[in-house]
C-alpha cells in the first residue's frame, strides 16, 4: 500500500508529515525520499547503509561514419535533444527523455543508445524504517527517471510512504503516480492556498483519492479551511504552529519523538488514510 505525501507549495511540511507517519507506525515501513533534487529524509532518519545503486538513462550516440545528415532524428525529437540541420547531429543529453525514437527513425542505423548516469539510490535501515533515497547528480536537469527508479523499489509486503517533491509538474506526477492515497500538506496562508488549489486540480486530474493536512494552524487566515469545506475536501489533520516542533526539526528530530503527544495525531492520520484505501477496495 502506497501513501504519497505531496504539496503544491514547498516548505509546508511534506517531510515532517512523511517522517512522523513512518515513526508513528511502529512497525515495518518503507519511506521513499522522492524529492531527489534535495532529499532530506536522511537528516532525520540515519541508519546503517544497505546499498548504493547507480541510476542511468539512455541517450543517443551517433556513429558519424554511418550518418548521412538526413535530419530525420532531429525532426523526430520534440525536445531538441538531437539536432541535425544538414549537418552531423548534435546531441544534448540533458534534454533527452530517453524515448529511443531517434535511433528507430534513423534510416542508416547510425544511432545507438548508451547509458548516462543521472544519480544514485541509497537504501538505509533505521530500526523498522527502510529509507530509500534518490539523489540526482549535480547538473542533471531531469528528475522523473530517477524518481521512477526509486519507486520501482517499492515493497509489496509493507506500507510505503512517498515523500514527494514540491510543485505540480512532472517530478510530482512521477512521485505520486500509482499511490493508493495522496496527502496534500498545506499551510493556512494565501501562498499555501494558491498552491493547494493547483495540487488539488492535479490529483483530481490523475484521479487519486486525497485529503489535506493543514500545518502551522494559527498563522495566516481561514481561507484554506473554507476552500476545503467548499470543495468537499477532507481535512485529515490540523497541526498547530508549535515552536517546539520547529526546534526539534532544526535538530533533525521527528516531532513524535521529541513530543510524544503528537504520536496519536499521526497514528490517527495514518488510520484515516488506510481506512479510506480499504473502503474504496484498494
Amino acid at each position: 500500500m502506497i501513501v504519497a505525501v505531496a504539496s503544491g507549495k514547498g516548505g509546508t511540511g511534506k517531510t515532517t508529515v512523511s517522517i512522523n507517519l513512518a515513526v508513528a507506525l511502529g512497525s515495518e515501513v518503507q519511506l521513499l525520499d522522492c524529492d531527489v533534487e534535495e532529499p532530506n529524509v536522511s537528516l532525520f532518519l540515519s541508519g546503517s547503509l544497505d546499498s548504493v545503486e547507480v541510476v542511468t538513462t539512455k541517450v543517443p550516440e551517433v556513429d558519424e561514419t554511418l550518418c548521412d545528415a538526413c535530419g530525420e532524428c532531429g525532426l523526430f525529437c520534440r525536445f531538441h535533444a538531437i539536432v541535425s540541420l544538414e549537418t552531423k547531429p548534435l546531441v544534448f543529453p540533458e534534454l533527452c527523455h530517453a524515448c529511443g525514437g531517434c535511433s528507430l527513425v534513423c534510416p542508416r542505423q547510425a544511432i545507438r543508445e548508451v547509458e548516462r548516469r543521472i544519480g544514485d539510490i541509497e537504501t538505509t535501515r533505521c530500526g523498522e524504517i527502510s529509507v530509500v533515497r534518490g539523489q540526482l547528480d549535480v547538473g542533471v536537469a531531469m528528475s522523473p527517471p530517477l524518481i521512477r527508479a526509486v519507486k520501482a523499489r517499492s515493497r509489496k509486503d509493507a506500507l510505503v510512504i512517498v515523500d514527494a517533491p514540491p510543485g505540480v509538474s512532472c517530478p510530482v506526477i512521477a512521485a505520486i503516480s500509482g499511490a493508493d492515497y495522496v496527502i496534500l500538506v498545506t499551510e493556512p496562508t494565501p501562498f499555501g492556498l494558491n498552491d493547494l488549489a493547483l495540487a488539488v486540480a492535479m490529483v483530481r486530474e490523475i484521479k487519486l483519492p486525497f485529503g489535506v493536512v493543514i500545518n502551522r494552524v494559527g498563522i495566516g487566515d481561514d481561507r484554506v479551511h473554507r476552500f476545503c469545506q467548499e470543495n468537499d475536501i477532507p481535512v485529515l489533520l490540523e497541526l498547530p504552529d508549535d515552536r517546539r516542533v520547529a526546534e526539534a526539526y532544526s535538530k533533525g528530530i521527528a516531532a513524535v519523538k521529541a513530543l510524544p503527544q503528537y504520536r496519536k495525531h499521526f497514528q490517527h492520520l495514518l488510520d484515516t488514510c488506510l481506512e479510506t484505501i480499504r473502503g474504496s477496495g484498494g
Binding site: G74, H80, L95
Partner: peptide, 16 residues
C-alpha cells in the same frame, strides 16, 4: 513557449 531548449529551437528556425 518551449519549457526547455528554446535556444536550440530558435537556432533551428534561423538555420531554416
Amino acid at each position: 513557449n518551449a519549457p526547455r531548449g528554446a535556444g536550440i529551437q530558435a537556432a533551428d528556425t534561423i538555420v531554416r
